[in-house]
Simulated scan of single mutants.
Amino acid sequence: MSQPIVAFESVYGSTRQYASELAARCGVEAVSFDEAQARLSADPQAPLVVLSPVHGPMNAGAKFITDTDLGDRRVALCTVGMTLDDVAVKKDGSARALGNKADRVTRFYLSGRLNYSELSTAHRTTMWTVVNMLKAKPMKNANDKMMIETFDTDVDRVDLTRLDEVVAWANG
């Protein structure tokens, strides 16, 4: 059985942390999307695990998968974000982002880290706008309340034990 290919993109570091840990547990190296392309060609049977943060509607991992010829390999997408777990699973934004490939991609959601102290000015401004819109919203759900309460606070919800099921899938 081929070893899995662990490909990732990270903006602020939590996705890189997950990818590095997953790769270590699988006995491989975590690689960029560009490097993953070469590895996919070299081993058409290797399972592919893609890790990517989600920023609003953008999921670079889903785009990588939709833009890539996957052949018959098994594929998983691990989306890293700050949305509460039950909301992320229920909305399943990764399925929408994957389009017609969604049915053949196993999807995982991993809680990330959002350190306001490290945000770019543009990202911080976007978060300020989102939070102020949520404050004006009459019926706030638990995720809305969490975003309001944690605004301008460094929050780390990375939990490497969440990788256990991804490792089981990768070795599956």
Rank of each mutant, 00 (worst) to 15 (best):
S14W: 02
R124I: 08
E9G: 13
S41D: 09
S117N: 03
G71K: 13
E118A: 02
E29F: 09
P47M: 06
P138C: 02
E35T: 14
A97G: 11
N143Q: 12
V131F: 02
G99V: 10
P47G: 09
D34V: 08
G93R: 07
I5D: 04
L119I: 00
S111P: 05
T66G: 12
D164Y: 14
E118P: 00
I5M: 04
T126Y: 05
Q17D: 04
A19Y: 03
E118T: 00
E118C: 05
L51N: 10
C78I: 07
R73Y: 07
Y12M: 02
M58V: 11
A36L: 06
D43K: 05
K137V: 05
A170E: 13
N143W: 02
E149L: 12
Y18R: 05
T129D: 11
T150M: 00
V158L: 00
V28N: 07
G27A: 12
A19L: 08
W169K: 13
S120I: 00
K135H: 04
C78D: 14
R162K: 15
A62N: 09
S120Q: 01
L84D: 09
A142K: 11
N141S: 11
E21C: 04
V130C: 13
D34Y: 09
R16A: 13
A170T: 10
T66I: 03
A42S: 12
H123C: 11
R104M: 13
D152R: 09
Q45C: 14
I65N: 10
V6I: 14
L77K: 05
V31A: 04
D34R: 15
T121M: 11
V130P: 04
M58T: 08
T129R: 10
D164P: 03
T150V: 07
N132C: 11
P44T: 09
F64S: 03
F108Y: 05
L51T: 10
C26H: 06
F8D: 10
R124F: 06
V89F: 12
V6G: 01
D43I: 03
K90W: 05
A62Q: 00
R162I: 06
Q45L: 14
R73F: 08
L163A: 07
N115T: 03
G99A: 10
G81R: 01
A62Y: 05
K101S: 07
S20E: 00
S94F: 02
A168C: 07
T15W: 03
D86N: 15
L163C: 01
V6Y: 01
A95K: 15
